[in-house]
Amino acid sequence: MDAYGELLEKAYGLYKKDWCDARGYAPDLVAEADSRDEEYNGEMYARMGEFED
């Protein structure tokens, strides 16, 4: 993986953590819903492609 890809993955991980923290959600529960391609409590953070844009 190149430096851009590594930075993007790290930034995306921080974004998802911040998204969960701002809403008081447990990141592991949100990640579980995401892995099933479901929303968590009626909402979900942006996908990687949306985040990158």
Score class of each variant (00 low, 15 high):
42 G>S: 05
8 L>Y: 05
43 E>L: 09
15 Y>F: 09
51 F>I: 05
49 G>N: 14
33 A>E: 01
36 R>K: 12
48 M>E: 15
31 A>V: 08
7 L>Y: 09
20 C>N: 11
17 K>C: 08
40 Y>A: 01
31 A>M: 06
9 E>N: 12
49 G>K: 02
21 D>H: 09
17 K>M: 03
41 N>P: 10
48 M>P: 14
30 V>M: 05
31 A>Y: 07
16 K>L: 04
14 L>T: 04
3 A>R: 14
49 G>V: 07
46 A>Q: 12
35 S>D: 12
19 W>N: 08
5 G>T: 08
23 R>Q: 11
37 D>H: 14
17 K>P: 00
19 W>Q: 01
4 Y>V: 12
50 E>D: 12
9 E>T: 11
19 W>T: 06
22 A>S: 15
50 E>H: 14
15 Y>V: 02
45 Y>N: 03
21 D>R: 11
48 M>L: 15
23 R>P: 11
51 F>C: 06
45 Y>Q: 02
10 K>M: 00
35 S>Q: 03
4 Y>P: 01
14 L>W: 01
19 W>D: 07
19 W>F: 07
49 G>D: 14
18 D>M: 08
47 R>A: 13
39 E>F: 05
26 A>P: 09
31 A>G: 06
16 K>F: 05
51 F>D: 00
38 E>P: 02
30 V>F: 05
38 E>Q: 09
45 Y>P: 09
5 G>K: 05
27 P>Q: 02
4 Y>A: 10
4 Y>W: 14
27 P>K: 10
17 K>Y: 03
11 A>W: 07
22 A>Q: 14
10 K>W: 12
2 D>E: 08
43 E>Y: 03
6 E>T: 05
52 E>W: 10
18 D>Y: 10
13 G>S: 06
32 E>K: 15
50 E>N: 15
42 G>W: 08
22 A>H: 04
29 L>V: 04
34 D>A: 13
42 G>L: 08
34 D>G: 14
28 D>A: 00
34 D>T: 12
37 D>Y: 01
2 D>T: 09
16 K>A: 09
27 P>D: 04
29 L>M: 13
9 E>P: 10
20 C>P: 00
6 E>K: 13
16 K>D: 09
35 S>R: 12
51 F>K: 05
48 M>A: 15
52 E>V: 03
49 G>Y: 04
23 R>G: 06
34 D>S: 15
18 D>T: 00
32 E>L: 15
41 N>E: 13
41 N>S: 14
10 K>V: 01
43 E>T: 14
18 D>L: 14
25 Y>F: 11
46 A>G: 12
15 Y>C: 11
15 Y>R: 09
12 Y>N: 13
37 D>C: 05
7 L>P: 09
53 D>S: 14
30 V>W: 04
16 K>N: 07
8 L>T: 02
34 D>K: 09
41 N>M: 02
18 D>S: 06
45 Y>V: 03
1 M>F: 14
45 Y>M: 02
26 A>Y: 01
39 E>G: 08
37 D>V: 06
42 G>R: 12
52 E>Q: 08
50 E>R: 10
29 L>D: 13
16 K>M: 10
36 R>T: 13
53 D>L: 09
46 A>V: 15
32 E>P: 03
25 Y>S: 04
26 A>G: 04
53 D>M: 02
48 M>C: 11
2 D>C: 15
16 K>G: 02
31 A>C: 01
33 A>C: 07
32 E>Q: 13
36 R>F: 06
30 V>Y: 04
29 L>H: 15
44 M>N: 10
22 A>R: 09
20 C>Q: 00
